[in-house]
Design a binder for these strands. Sequence first.
DNA 1: CATCACTTTATACTATCGTATAATATCGCG
DNA 2: CGCGATATTATACGATAGTATAAAGTGATG
Lengths: 211, 211
Amino acid sequence: METDDSQPLARAPRRSFSKKAPDVRRQELIDATFRCLVRLGEAETSVRTIADEAGLSLGMVRHHFRSKDELLAETYRHLSAQLQEQTARALAEAGPSPGEQLHALVMAGLRPPILDRDYIRVRFLFWGLTHTNEAVRRVHEEIYGRFQQQLHDLIEQTARANGATVDAATVTLAVMALLKGAWLEWSLAPDAVDPQALVAQILPVLRESLS
Amino acid sequence: METDDSQPLARAPRRSFSKKAPDVRRQELIDATFRCLVRLGEAETSVRTIADEAGLSLGMVRHHFRSKDELLAETYRHLSAQLQEQTARALAEAGPSPGEQLHALVMAGLRPPILDRDYIRVRFLFWGLTHTNEAVRRVHEEIYGRFQQQLHDLIEQTARANGATVDAATVTLAVMALLKGAWLEWSLAPDAVDPQALVAQILPVLRESLS
DNA sequence: CATCACTTTATACTATCGTATAATATCGCG
DNA sequence: CGCGATATTATACGATAGTATAAAGTGATG
């Protein structure tokens, strides 16, 4: 009989690590969650796979987030913030007229890094989670309306500037649907579609109705 | 000490049941899967919750399907077949001209029972699964192209009948995106959107480009 | 009414789930 | 340089996951 290599009473050696600020670790876990959702989908993304992906131990998730659901919700919040920043940048760079601002707003989400197959996929995944995950739903309701409100206001201003009267609410929804459709179509077949060209093709009817 | 009520050696009484044809049981499990996905989402839909929802025992899933993934894939196939049947019916009822057929095809999916918040939600859920679930991906690739092919052909025929030349592939993608967008927008806020009106609003630009 | 194929249930199995607790390594500060 | 705060790891816990196997009920057939 060989001697048993395992020594049940000896403590296992502990991994060395370096401390980091809570904010840094939180962001690392959020990024790891995003990558897990891309690679594994929702059902197979566990707190353990997330911790592994981040190169951290299991306990870190519960140390920095109240629960797995909260980590998911914060990941959704992070993705939303990215789009929001890119949109703000695009609006700042565009001309000041309502028409130019409107065009910038619509096109902002149709170029990298937002127009990224992983980003779009996970965004859709979270929209689905909205229906069954309470924490995600709360973040969604808190954040989602902003973009739509901006769009609605610019559509109204553009029409007024052109002396036209439109049903701004309906036009807003049409544009939202077009954007989501372009994203989704592209996410399902990235090579076959150029979302920017796709939206540009339909946008004239919008401009027409606003003048 | 009380007497132990449990009798470890006595067999538990077995539920009575009635036999049904395999096809019937398969459909019952598929329907139960759909309802579980609506109510619980993907991550919390287990073979046990499905069996409970169907009022059947756990073993039935593996008796009638090779695995949970296959059951999911067959559920997706069932949803696709529903849309396909509704589309075929709409085409049969519509006028024979390419333009009428095209209109019927686009509008077919924008009324009940396809335009159903649960149906749309689960359909989107499966589109997401396409990326991480091999079995679902295979069904998707087998089935998904048909609708798009029909649409493409009708767009081409309509343009030819009107003596117009269009990039049918691009127009097809635009219409697909519009449809998906309308569905998704409606699934996120069913009260705020009328998908049929929404598509009708943008459709003129399509008709224009085809004549 | 006995037989038998097959549907169906019950249960076991191992792995992994999210969460909870205790021990320990790290680093700022005196 | 040693101490204290806390970030971090290790491990445990009950519940549940998907899958596998064996036993038993059902209904058609003769």
